[in-house]
Amino acid sequence: MSVPAADLLASAPAQDLRAGAAPRARGWLRNLEIAVPGTVLVVLLFFCFIWPLVYHVPDPTVGNLFQVNLPLWSPGHILGTDTVGYDIMSRILYGGRVSFEVAAAVQLIGLVFGGLFGMVAAYRGGWTEAVMMRILDVFIAFPSLVLVLAIADSLGPSETHVIWALSAFSIPAFARVSRAATLRLRDQPFVVAARLAGTKTWRIMLRHLTPNIAPQMLTFSLLGASLTIILEGALDFLGYGIPAPTATWGNMIATGESFISVYPRLVIVPSIFLLVTSICLNMMGDGLRARWGVR
């Protein structure tokens, strides 16, 4: 029996109907879940990093003793000033910078080192994996704040030290996520096929594994960033973080705390910023996770 060539060239039937017909339930709501926190974050980032470049913002570390304890909406000081005459708005913006910088750096370090660590562990398997993961377990077993405090204390207060201290907590977390994601992929036929095709191990990790675990890692890093910002604030508040004259949200809350009964806004204003940023990052992470179908 012979078959015309055209039949062999014929392509397969169209997509599964059920998939095409699957309802996009609450599609607009899901869009809002990402759009709202996204916009808030973009606005915050703009004011923290771009605004001071184009518009005059008072120096956050130079106070004016004639203008202390100005209330909200004072001319020239929208959010007022604190007990030593620092402009609160300016301190919020510069403090936000620190928060975002620390969060981004910690996530990046976690992503690169932790991600690689977990991927290598999972892909190699066997003893390598067992040893590598036990090392991580040691880090994870410590209560994160205590561990971070201990490291920050031994390193001494500075922004880079805070970043390293917080990374001690983000690297194992990223490693675990990356390991779990890689484990799911490792025995997928397309990875086996790549090995059969003769692709080198590092290339498989870079070209096959990395793009496939990227959505998961990115959503996790947004959730992680939200936590990092809180932790960084806590470190500052406890005096193990970035030293006092530098404006950070944690420092502002720490100094404001002494005057909480007289001037509650000194604590409330930075706390609101801390909270909103953290919630937005969290929502963003959750929203993207739902959209990308990441578990």
Binding site: V3, D7, L8, S11, A12, A14
Partner: peptide, 14 residues
Amino acid sequence: HVLLPVVGGRPPDQ
């Protein structure tokens, strides 16, 4: 090793 008689193409777009 006998080829099966097959029809080409795919079901229509519904």
